[in-house]
Amino acid sequence: MSLHYASNDWYPVADAACLARGPRKTRLLGTDLEVLGPFDHPVVTDMGGRCFPVQVRYNHLWTTIGDDPRPLFDIPEADEPGRRHVPCGVVRVKCSPLRAVENFLDIAHFPFVHTGILGAEPHTEVAAYKAEIREDVDEVWATNISFYQPQAAKSAAGGITTRYEYRVPAPTAAVLYKTCPPRPEAMDVIAIFVQPRSETDCDVWPWMALYDDTTNFADLAQFQQEIFLQDRSILENQRPVKLPLDPKLEIPTRADMTSIAYRRWLKRRGAYYGALTDQT
């Protein structure tokens, strides 16, 4: 049941850089796939030769293995002029795809896991913010978040209090809007697109759309890779591996409002792939 629900979403399976090196053998929701380039005319098949639909969005190649796929979510900022799109490659993590998303929605870990970059003691307090399931769009949103950050972005010159908003448009994708140091009136967009290889193993594709024309690509991509690799050792050490949806199994606080909303939203959608439920 959980696999059936998950199979009707779209997932990233390649980017231009990886297809330029040759075909990519990969796995999606337990199904072995082969992705053949070129990036603008790709083919995705399983080992039996069955072809799956493809589309190129947000610098990634997306596919779905379901019979009745829901549309791929829209990130309207992707089309805004002046934004630089930065695909950051792919990182493999032995964790539930849902734990990877939940960690991305969490700010309280910044001082301990991203020390000196996204947070630092003694600035550990998480002020009250708003987290909700927006019924009109059926998405999780968290707004009115602010947090002190020693180096919020590659373009930041020093510590600033950063404003954050989070959006969860699909169970395995999350979008962050945060203060853009060179353009205080605008928001940078940072996303993670998770490719669930199985319920406990995933490939994560970080992606950014920034207002930053000066920093070179390598610096931008490495900033994001550094952050994500700091999270990786956390994600591989959470137990149970699957995300518990029963509120009694893990203890949240006010700082975890986004995670509470995310888990509730997963539960009511029946998005159980990677989750620990009564059924699993």
Binding site: D15, A17, C18, R21, P87, C88, G89, V90, N216, F217, A218, D219, A221, Q222, Q225
Partner: peptide, 10 residues
């Protein structure tokens, strides 16, 4: 000097 070792293989 940051070199795009991955994903760019620079």
């Amino acid at each position: 000097v940051a070199v795009n070792f991955y994903p760019g293989f620079e």
